[in-house]
């Protein structure tokens, strides 16, 4: 057996483990926090309150208008200069959550707007307040619409977490980098990292399909 193949096999499980223990938890935590943030930002943008919607618009604009890597560096390398030192993991989670918050907010806002106005009125006419109508009537329907775009956001996030390797978080890509630096087999290790990311994303896509089917059960086909 060639030594290249042997190196591939030897490094496969460490790289996968880097994904399972680093990439995936980082992505899941950031996505969960980011979604909560995004819902708040989406509602703020839809609010009649000018200050609130202006602040939300500003936030989305900054997040979408600046590179994720720069956001990450501002938090991890920038904040310590003003006395705020945050460890690699929390820094990464903060940066990625803020990022998801900005992108997903637009998705959620569009999904809420896609629910017909009559659904709000039907909620009101049976005596619901706007917040109950939002929770019981509008969001469940908006959720169905937003699953495909939010899945995209999540899959992008899984790949973007590789940036966390630059602030010393041990995840999939950093593990590959370390083995590559040690073995000098850059081509092999980086292609292997790409392969493992791709396998992860395949699994996530099938999860997305299952979720879409479940949410589509009340729609005519």
């Amino acid at each position: 057996m060639s030594s290249g193949w042997q190196l591939f096999l030897d490094s496969f499980w460490p790289i996968v483990w880097g994904g399972v223990s680093g990439t995936i938890p980082l992505a899941l935590a950031s996505f969960a926090i980011g979604l909560v943030l995004a819902l708040g930002v989406a509602l703020a943008r839809l609010s009649k309150n000018r200050v609130l919607s202006g602040a939300a618009r500003f936030y989305v604009s900054v997040i979408r208008g600046t590179p994720l890597l720069v956001q990450l560096f501002v938090i991890f390398y920038g904040l310590p200069t003003i006395g705020l030192v945050i460890d690699p993991w929390p820094s990464a989670i903060i940066a990625f959550s803020l990022n998801v918050g900005g992108y997903a907010a637009e998705v959620i806002r569009a999904a809420i707007l896609s629910v017909p106005k009559g659904q709000w009125e039907a909620g009101y006419t049976i005596g619901m307040s706007s917040s109950t109508t939002l929770r019981r009537i509008i969001l469940p329907q908006a959720a169905r619409v937003s699953v495909p775009p939010l899945s995209n956001t999540f899959i992008s996030l899984v790949k973007d977490t590789s940036l966390a390797s630059l602030i010393l978080v041990t995840e999939l890509f950093r593990v590959s980098q370390q083995i590559a630096a040690f073995s000098r087999e850059f081509m092999l290790l980086y292609l292997e990292a790409a392969l493992v990311y791709w396998l992860f994303c395949l699994v996530l896509s099938s999860g997305q399909n299952a979720l879409e089917r479940r949410l589509d059960r009340y729609v005519a086909h």
């Binding site: 659904q119 009125e121 307040s129 009340y218 729609v219």
Partner: peptide, 21 residues
């Protein structure tokens, strides 16, 4: 307004049933 709303109930032209229920 809410108290007044609760005195009546509306049937809409486009029924506006909740599609997810």
């Amino acid at each position: 307004r809410f108290a007044m709303r609760n005195r009546s109930a509306m049937v809409f032209q486009q029924h506006n049933l909740f599609p997810h229920m």
